[in-house]
Every structure is written in C-alpha cells, then in structure tokens.
C-alpha cells in the first residue's frame, strides 16, 4: 500500500512539474504559431519578467530608489505585463522589422542574439543576486493532504496547474473568438495571404510577442517563487524543448499534454530506472522520450500534419 502511495506521489509530482514546463513551452508555441520563429529567448524573457516584477516589489530595486515606494502585488503584476508589452514593441522595432522575408534560421539566430542582449540587460539593470519572490502564492507541501492521506503535493504546483488551466482557456478564447486571434491564425497559416487581405504583420508581431511576454511573466512568477529569481531561470527553456518536440510547436493543448507526459515520464524514470544506472537521468530521459515520439509523429502529438505535395 505504501508503495502505491509513493507511485501516486511520483505520478502526481510528475504531472505538476509537467505543468511548470508547459508554462514555459506555451510562450514558444505562441510565437512559433503566429510567426514561425523559434524564439530562443523565451527562457530569458521569463527571467527578465521575473526580475522586473521583483523590482517593483522590493525596496532594493530601481523603482523604490526612484519613487520612494514599492507597488502592491496586484499593481506590480500588470505593471510588469506592461513592461513586457513595451519590450515586445522594442523587439519588433529593432529586430523583427528588419527580418521580414528572411529565412527562418536567420530569425532563429536573431533570437539567440536577443537572448544574450536581454540577459545582459537584466544583469545590468537588476543585478545577479538571488531575489526571493513572494507574491503570496502558497508554498510547501499541502498540510491537509500530507496529514490526512500522507500524500505530498506542493501547493505552489497546484496553484501553477490552476493558473495554466486558466491560461489555456483564455488563450483558446483569444485565438478562436477574437478578431486579433483570427488575424494571428491567418498570419500563422500564410504570411503573404494575410498581408494581401490587410493584416498588418508589424502589429501582429507586437501582439504575439506581447502575449508571449505575458505568458513568460506567468512562468517567471511560478519558477521564481519556487527557487528565487536568479539567472539559472533562463535555463528552464531547456526543459521546454522536449515538451515542444513531443507536443508539437504549434499546439497550445500540445504544450500542456506534452508537458504532462514529459513530467511524469522523467520522474518515473529517475525514481525507478535512475538507481540502476547511477541516477540523474531525468534531463536526458526527457529528450529521449521526445525523440522516440519523433520517430512516429515528426510533427509532435498535436502539431499540424506535414503534407508535402509533389
């Protein structure tokens, strides 16, 4: 019986961790879906958003130094969202605008450069210290589950799962039911056709990078609350890659389901196979799992079917 509870714990923890990965993967999907760009800077955007949020909240930040007060959480989060929108606009004006009609690999390379610039900017503006982020999200194990069922689940991760669910619903409504969402889908289907019917590519790119920035903020809040805001946060992008390979680069539900499969898969592997091979296998196991899926579905679980007409 004890074993069963442990197995259940491993699976639930895997699912919860998977949701955390999916939050990062969602940002990649949004940009790829609308513009075909694989945004290498997504992890750094999550870091940058978390750094900016911390700055609004803390007395050792720029905001306090300039204005002499800090913002309450309910105001700091939209203010950070605004920063991410401004960042999206700046990226469009200074990088993307000059990359229209360029090959996808050039756009990808541009996002690598962007990652380094953003990381350096974050370092200069906010410093490299670990910043404890506390916006009131419950932390630690759920006492109720632990005391009544001897089941260990992190409250932060339950909160993250709820947030991810809300985010998916909001994004689904945004893409399916709003005019801008339909324009985004049109651009994703065919840039040239969308342009020919009057959809402004510049505007669409600003919008999609803004939405992706806000999703990065959500990911930054969750991961920053978990480990403190610090520069290793940018590396969580590496955790999102197998999720994307598995779920497909263009599917919002794919990012969620992919995250869940990767989360559970890597935890089961680490706990049950790890001890036989020396441990620390979860990182590469996630990629192996994703590669195995690639063999059967190159477009990922929910990705658009690849049809080549000859």
């Amino acid at each position: 019986m004890a074993f069963d509870i442990f197995l259940l714990e491993v699976i639930i923890s895997g699912l919860m961790t998977g949701v955390m990965y999916a939050l990062v993967a969602l940002g990649f999907v949004l940009i790829f879906k609308a513009s075909g760009i694989f945004n290498f800077a997504q992890g750094v955007m999550a870091l940058f958003a978390a750094l900016a949020l911390y700055d609004f909240l803390a007395e050792d930040g720029w905001f306090f130094a300039v204005f002499g007060f800090t913002l309450p959480v309910w105001l700091a989060i939209p203010a950070t969202g605004l920063i991410m929108v401004v960042l999206a606009w700046v990226i469009e004006r200074t990088v993307l605008r000059f990359m229209v009609k360029q090959n996808e690999i050039i756009l990808f390379m541009a996002t690598i450069g962007l990652a380094f610039v953003l990381e350096g900017l974050g370092d200069i503006l906010f410093g490299s210290d670990v910043k404890p982020l506390d916006i009131g999200i419950p932390q630690g194990a759920s006492d109720w589950l632990l005391d009544n069922f001897n089941l260990y689940i992190e409250q932060l991760e339950i909160f993250a799962a709820g947030t991810a669910a809300v985010l998916v619903v909001v994004l689904a409504i945004f893409f399916q039911r709003t005019r801008i969402g339909r324009a985004l889908r049109a651009v994703a289907d065919d840039h040239q056709a969308a342009l020919s019917v009057g959809v402004s590519l510049d505007k669409i790119w600003v919008i999609v990078w803004s939405v992706s920035g806000i999703v990065a903020l959500v990911a930054g809040i969750m991961w920053g609350s978990k480990s403190g805001v610090q520069f290793s946060l940018s590396l969580i992008a590496l955790k999102a890659l197998p999720v994307l390979i598995l779920g497909g680069f263009t599917s919002v539900p794919g990012a969620i389901v992919g995250g869940l499969i990767i989360g559970v898969g890597e935890k089961l592997a680490e706990v049950y196979i790890g001890p036989m091979v020396g441990g620390a296998i979860e990182n590469w196991f996630a990629y192996m799992l994703a590669l195995a899926f690639l063999l059967f579905r190159p477009q990922g679980l929910f990705g658009e079917r690849i049809i080549e007409r000859v």
């Binding site: 491993v10 923890s13 961790t17 955390m20 590396l235 955790k239 890597e266 935890k267 680490e270 706990v271």
Partner: peptide
C-alpha cells in the same frame, strides 16, 4: 532547478 524526484 528541478529536484522533485530526488526528494521523493
């Protein structure tokens, strides 16, 4: 950054 399996 992720150590859940270890602590389980």
């Amino acid at each position: 950054q992720e150590q859940k399996a270890t602590w389980l």
